Simulated scan of single mutants.
Amino acid sequence: MATTSIRGSAFNLDLNGRHHKAALGVFMFIVIAHWAEHVVQAIQVYAWGWPLADARGVLGLPFPWLVTSEWMHYGYALLMLVGLIMLRKGFAGSSRTWWNISLGIQVWHHMEHLLLLAQKLSGLYLAGRPVPTSVLQLVLPRMELHLFYNAVVFVPMVVAMVLHRRAKEQAGANCTCAPVLVPAT
């Protein structure tokens, strides 16, 4: 058990140390690709006039089950939550504050997806709706709500990363994300 803990700790130190920049890059690629799917779906509805049932983003066109799979949506929400938690220790100062804001919003977003998945599995739907419904979906349509969620998680995450890349924000951080400053000669 102690060996697993030591290995897990070393992994976390590497992830938030020498591999932090690469891990953030991979994480942001996944986040942006997911958000792009939601943006494409909105373009399909609002710019191209497609019915919502036909607007499935890019990957949802050849794989329509992706759009309707509560497991897939929950899995992504969980991946986001785990990524935000695992990469958190690499941040310091105000960049950590912004990362924490993103994490806090993602906790709620994750809970909404957990609620949707529980409804799908149980067949018992919120407020007597005919389909799984999240709390905020009671006042906002699902497509627009997920665009909103992705934006309000993404924006503070980007602010955190921009601040994090500044050398002055690196005090207390143990990573190589900040650019190396070469002294003037």
Rank of each mutant, 00 (worst) to 15 (best):
V40K: 02
A42P: 00
I43F: 07
V45N: 03
Y46I: 15
Y46E: 15
Y46V: 15
W48P: 00
G49C: 13
W50P: 00
P51Y: 03
A53N: 05
R56A: 02
R56I: 02
R56M: 03
L59E: 01
G60W: 01
P62L: 02
P62G: 01
L66C: 06
V67L: 15
T68L: 08
E70T: 09
W71I: 14
W71H: 14
M72Y: 13
H73K: 15
Y74R: 11
Y76S: 12
Y76P: 06
A77V: 02
L78R: 03
V82W: 02
V82P: 05
G83S: 01
L84E: 06
R88I: 06
R88Y: 05
F91S: 13
G93L: 07
S95E: 10
T97V: 07
T97F: 06
W98S: 00
W99G: 11
N100L: 12
N100G: 03
I101L: 13
I101A: 09
L103C: 10
V107G: 09
E112C: 03
K120V: 05
L121N: 07
G123W: 05
Y125R: 00
A127F: 14
G128I: 10
G128D: 04
P130D: 15
P130N: 15
V131F: 14
V131L: 10
T133A: 05
S134M: 01
V135N: 05
Q137K: 07
L138Q: 10
E144I: 13
L145I: 12
F148D: 08
Y149S: 13
N150M: 12
V152N: 09
V152T: 04
F154Y: 13
F154H: 05
V155P: 00
M157V: 06
V158M: 14
V159F: 11
A160W: 10
V162A: 09
L163W: 12
L163R: 15
L163T: 09
R165P: 00
